[in-house]
């Protein structure tokens, strides 16, 4: 087996098991209250992590580039209570314009 297929096989099987672990092992059961309180906070915690990572993360570095300007535009649109689709489109367009203006 070549290296490429080894990676594809191990990552593929590993990811499938990771993704299925909760839904298959827990089934339809509810979590105990204390565990449920923790799980309820996973969404805000991980979403905030994804916001940070997708805004300023680049490999193992923090960088300020055109994405951050796009996110700034998104903050403005959210403050104006714009619908999500508009927020996302304005963020992308702003970042694209910033790149046209020479910002990496």
């Amino acid at each position: 087996m070549s290296d490429a297929w080894l990676i594809v096989a191990v990552v593929g099987i590993g990811t499938m098991l990771i993704k299925a672990s909760g839904p298959v092992l827990l089934g339809g059961r509810r979590l105990p209250p204390r565990a449920a309180a923790v799980v309820a906070l996973l969404a805000p915690a991980l979403l905030a992590a994804l916001v940070v990572s997708a805004s300023v993360g680049s490999d193992s570095q923090l960088v300020a580039d055109a994405r951050l300007i796009g996110v700034g535009a998104a903050v403005l649109m959210l403050a104006l209570r714009a619908p999500i689709l508009l927020v996302v489109v304005v963020a992308a367009a702003t970042a694209a314009l910033a790149r046209v203006a020479g910002i990496p």
């Binding site: 994804l50 997708a54 805004s55 055109a66 994405r67 996110v71």
Partner: peptide, 13 residues
């Protein structure tokens, strides 16, 4: 196309 800025914007929203 600025698509890499679409993801943090969505996650933030």
């Amino acid at each position: 196309l600025g698509l890499d800025a679409a993801f943090p914007a969505l996650f933030l929203a």
